[in-house]
């Protein structure tokens, strides 16, 4: 952990919960917050997990879509939707001309793209610093009803759609995916808001009887 150069935006907010930490992708990461069975129960009730350490690649510009396609990336066709690559990496289309790609820990797609030089105009890499969370459990509707004004039950997250909205007063991107067979919500926000949003969500989650789970709960680091 001492060797990790990178730091999750949420790292210092974790400290209060004394997680078991480790190095993932060169980043100091909360691997677990409690015993596996406790975390399993939390994830069924209501839980939050910091996955800011997953590698991401952002790109923006009028030619961004073509450039990604040329690189062999399968793109979501409509604005504000997402798709998975065969290796499980997520590709999100934020608006029309901006894309965010996120790898699973074992993938290198984001890094490969980051290292690829852009030779054409109209394609601009976007340095990302997302705080990224996984929220799961049967009480997620109750959580979101307190922090988000829009209707998430009304199909707004179905069919691989994503929404850019305000969560607990912070601009965020939200989608729903199936992870390890479990339906979960994913949240990304500007990393500098990460500690705030983590604490705000965790506060409500704990009121509802849930709690934090570590990175290892979803991914084998």
């Amino acid at each position: 952990m001492q060797d990790a150069v990178l730091m999750s935006p949420v790292a210092f907010a974790h400290a209060l919960k004394k997680p078991v930490s480790g190095d993932v992708n060169g980043m100091q990461t909360a691997l677990s917050f409690a015993d596996a069975d406790v975390e399993a129960t939390r994830s069924k009730t209501l839980s939050i997990c910091d996955v800011s350490n997953l590698n991401r690649f952002g790109v923006k510009g009028p030619q961004a879509a073509d450039w990604l396609k040329a690189a062999g990336i399968k793109l979501p066709e409509t604005t504000n939707s997402w798709t998975s690559q065969e290796n499980g990496s997520l590709v999100m289309r934020l608006g029309n001309t901006e894309f965010l790609l996120e790898d699973k820990p074992e993938n290198q797609l984001a890094k490969t793209l980051s290292d690829t030089a852009v030779e054409q105009s109209g394609v601009h890499k976007v340095l990302r610093n997302d705080a990224a969370f996984i929220v799961s459990g049967e009480l997620t509707p109750a959580l979101f009803s307190e922090v988000c004004a829009i209707d998430l039950d009304n199909g707004s997250l179905e069919d691989n759609r994503l929404v850019m909205t305000v969560i607990a007063g912070v601009s965020a991107t939200l989608l729903k995916q199936t992870l390890n067979g479990q339906s979960v919500y994913r949240i990304w926000c500007d990393g500098t808001f990460g500690p705030y949003l983590w604490k705000a969500l965790l506060g409500i989650i704990e009121e509802q009887g849930g709690g934090p789970v570590g990175f290892n709960f979803y991914y084998n680091a």
């Binding site: 730091m7 935006p9 210092f12 607990a168 007063g169 500098t192 808001f193 990460g194 500690p195 705030y196």
Partner: peptide, 11 residues
């Protein structure tokens, strides 16, 4: 809700 932003060096 009272959002705050924190820099990387906050802690």
């Amino acid at each position: 809700f009272h959002p705050h932003r924190y820099t990387a060096m906050h802690q």
